[in-house]
């Protein structure tokens, strides 16, 4: 796979890589040769920035899926120190264990104490094994709920960062009640007396994502996805061919712009050009601003208003005729 700035590039970025290589070849050539190619280089560079704009401004759903899954895409633990101060991680569900596929704790946001809960995947194999590829077991969801209840006691807002392919489909997960753990979170989140802000930062895979998603507002990063099933899964069930994932990604309407249009999410958070992994620092600042704006809207609401608003939000989702 070609590298650009040391980052893994994606197929839809190929034309850019080719052009960039050509430009640097020309530059190298002029440095050692007598000919002046600066006007040619200039025109290629103009073409490059035009192409860059064209490609990144017209990303297809499948392109966004690839960005959402980019191995270097910033994770919950990347964002926390860039957005919050004084983060202290709190572990364990007090029932079975500590699921490292979910990270949670307390911190301050512009001086306001908050609770943060987020899926955590790894960026390399070793960390992915430790984090179970960001796919939680029931104890992960129960830890999340424990900390949500704690946040409620101390009247601090809850910020959930969603980034998972889904809840883990394993034997132990079933034995310990994966279904119940997710279902319990959905019901209990409905009744939380504090603001809940859910932000999809990568993949939002099915019930395992929704278990952190019953927020007063749902925000999605521009290149994140939220879906009932992965494009590959949908393709293999609908057309018996997982190679049609690209088609499924479009048909299933899983991208942030799609969900915004369907009024399932409140806001889409813009990403730095090409995706969050190009500049995590700047991306964190954009997310931070989005959180500030949303909390400003929610902080003034009473417990009753918050519960009522959450109720109305989810109650209204669905398309049917009477």
């Amino acid at each position: 796979m070609a590298k650009k700035n040391g980052k893994k590039t994606m197929p839809f970025e190929e034309p850019l890589i080719q052009l960039r290589t050509k430009i640097s070849e020309l530059k190298e050539y002029t440095a050692n040769a007598e000919v002046d190619l600066s006007s040619e280089i200039k025109s290629l560079e103009d073409r490059f920035s035009k192409l860059e704009e064209e490609i990144y401004e017209n990303m297809k759903p499948w392109d966004r899926v690839q960005v959402a899954r980019h191995p270097e895409r910033p994770t919950t633990l990347d964002y926390i120190p860039l957005i919050f101060n004084d983060f202290i991680e709190l572990h364990g569900d007090r029932l079975y264990g500590d699921d490292e596929a979910i990270v949670s704790g307390i911190a301050s946001f512009h001086g306001q104490p908050v609770t943060i809960i987020g899926h955590q995947r790894g960026k390399d194999t070793k960390e992915n094994v430790r984090r179970n590829f960001g796919m939680p077991h029931p104890e992960g969801y129960r830890k999340a709920l424990r900390l949500m209840k704690q946040a409620e006691k101390f009247k601090r807002p809850i910020i959930c960062l969603i980034d998972t392919k889904g809840a883990y489909p394993g034997k132990a997960a079933e034995e310990r009640g994966q279904s119940e753990a997710i279902a319990r979170n959905l019901v209990e989140m409905a009744g939380l007396e504090v603001p809940v802000l859910s932000i999809v930062i990568g993949e939002g895979g099915s019930g395992g994502a929704l278990a952190l998603g019953v927020g007063n507002q749902i925000l999605m990063l521009e290149n994140s996805t939220f879906s009932v099933i992965s494009p590959e899964g949908a393709a293999s069930i609908l057309w018996k061919d997982s190679a049609l994932a690209q088609t499924a990604a479009e048909a299933m309407k899983i991208t942030a712009p799609d969900l915004l249009e369907m009024k399932i999410i409140e806001h889409m958070i813009p990403e730095v050009r090409g995706g969050a992994h190009h500049d995590p620092q700047r991306q964190a600042a954009i997310i931070s601003e989005a959180i500030r704006r949303s909390l400003a809207e929610l902080n003034g609401m009473t417990a009753e208003e918050l519960i009522d608003q959450r109720y109305r939000k989810f109650k209204s989702i669905g398309v049917f005729s009477e």
Partner: peptide, 19 residues
Amino acid sequence: MQEGVLSLMQMAKTSVALK
């Protein structure tokens, strides 16, 4: 599946009513 994420959100909808 044919109703995509709208189907997923029915899990949340029924839950807020149950609460």
